[in-house]
Amino acid sequence: MAHDTAHHESNTKRIWNVFIILSVITIVEVILGIIKPAFLVDIKLVSMKLLNWIFIILTIWKAYYITWAFMHMEGETKGLRRSVVWTSVFLICYLIFILLTEGDYIYEVYKSGYVSWDF
């Protein structure tokens, strides 16, 4: 936090730790993305490959570290933290839910409807 500049202890160690965590997560993502293990691709979970769920969870984990450690959200007041994080999480989840549902519906229409789009 910016106030109490005088007794501010150095966070350098934590910063490097977070950097190592972020790097390891990214390396894991890249390795999974290159080899694409067959068993992760085959398993479907809520109409998506398990591998994709792993990617999304790892991404959110990275986002958590960037926001909490680098942007120093962990040091802000509860009020500020909630007004930023809860608002965005709620609106983004809602938006993703309606748009993906609609996208899937249009896919079904294209597939089984009377309109041919591959001619």
Binding site: L80, V84, L91, L99, L100, G103, D104, K111
Partner: peptide, 28 residues
Amino acid sequence: MWFFILSDALTFSGFLAAYGFSRFKFID
């Protein structure tokens, strides 16, 4: 700055969700 970031984050999620929409539309 935090509230600007919040609004910008929503803009980007709008784009990415639209990307997801189009991708689900042409999922195969």
